[in-house]
């Protein structure tokens, strides 16, 4: 359906609608038709991606006002009440177990993936343990400990943790780094991140790390993967 013979100018007609689409100025039917065309037409996707930053700039050009303090108060009161309600036991872990990733269980698939990963890990990544002190900082290391190799630390507090990394290879625009939590040989996807220009990054690991064996970092397509598609760059063992 990339070409409608009844509409020989099909592509050009859609192309002319891209700016209106980016501005939210097509009606629902027109927008749906254009989206169907976009799914098949890379040239139009590229043009749309070129136009979108111009539209993103519009909301930021408006006169900047001070939001009413009441807005923040009401919003946070609702949010904190809902966070408590979502956790009948009142524990953080109860909240965390409800997080979206937690509903996606890929155990059968990831068990296989993890086997491959551990083999790959033996070659491409190994772990250096640092003696855990009370602040619970674990080193995350990669292939080499030579200067300039990816390195990092995993800082735990309660159930969550923050991974602080440096010397990460710069990524092409379509890729991102993905954090994984290894538990009983299965890998659960956690956060996605892109390093800063100085190749450092901090990534949240919001999942409860109870019973987790390790935290890993792999390079993945920008939208993230459900199981790793590359060997880990960094690995922090938690035992």
């Amino acid at each position: 359906m990339s070409h409608d013979p009844g509409r020989p100018e099909g592509h050009e007609a859609y192309r002319e609608d891209l700016a209106a689409y980016a501005l939210g100025a097509l009606d629902d039917r027109e927008a749906a038709e254009l989206e169907a065309h976009l799914a098949e037409c890379e040239a139009c996707r590229i043009e749309l991606r070129w136009l979108e930053p111009a539209v993103d700039l519009l909301p930021r050009s408006v006169e900047q006002l001070e939001p009413p303090a009441d807005l923040r108060k009401r919003l946070m009161a609702t949010v904190r009440a809902e966070a408590r309600d979502a956790s009948p036991t009142g524990t953080e872990a109860g909240v965390r177990r409800r997080r979206a990733w937690g509903t996606m269980i890929w155990r059968p698939a990831t068990a296989v993936a993890a086997t491959g990963l551990l083999v790959a890990g033996g070659v491409a990544g190994y772990l250096v343990h640092q003696p855990s002190d009370s602040s619970s900082v674990v080193a995350a290391r990669g292939v080499s400990s030579a200067p300039g190799s990816p390195a990092g630390t995993l800082e735990r507090s309660d159930g969550s943790a923050i991974l602080t990394m440096s010397n990460l290879p710069t990524l092409p625009a379509d890729d991102a780094y993905e954090v994984w939590v290894e538990r009983d040989g299965a890998l659960e996807p956690s956060s996605l991140f892109v390093p800063r220009r100085d190749r450092t990054a901090e990534a949240a690991v919001p999942d409860g790390l109870d019973n987790a064996d390790a935290v890993l970092v792999t390079r993945e397509p920008r939208g993230g993967s459900r199981q790793p598609t590359s060997p880990p760059l960094l690995r922090a063992d938690l035992d």
């Binding site: 997080r99 990733w101 956060s191 996605l192 990534a203 949240a204």
Partner: peptide, 23 residues
């Protein structure tokens, strides 16, 4: 100090403190 993307992961995990920073 977290990047927006990482903050959103915490917000998705229903962390009210992260949401406050986001707001």
């Amino acid at each position: 100090r977290l990047a927006d993307e990482d903050l959103m992961t915490l917000v998705d995990g229903k962390d009210p403190d992260a949401f406050e920073v986001f707001y």
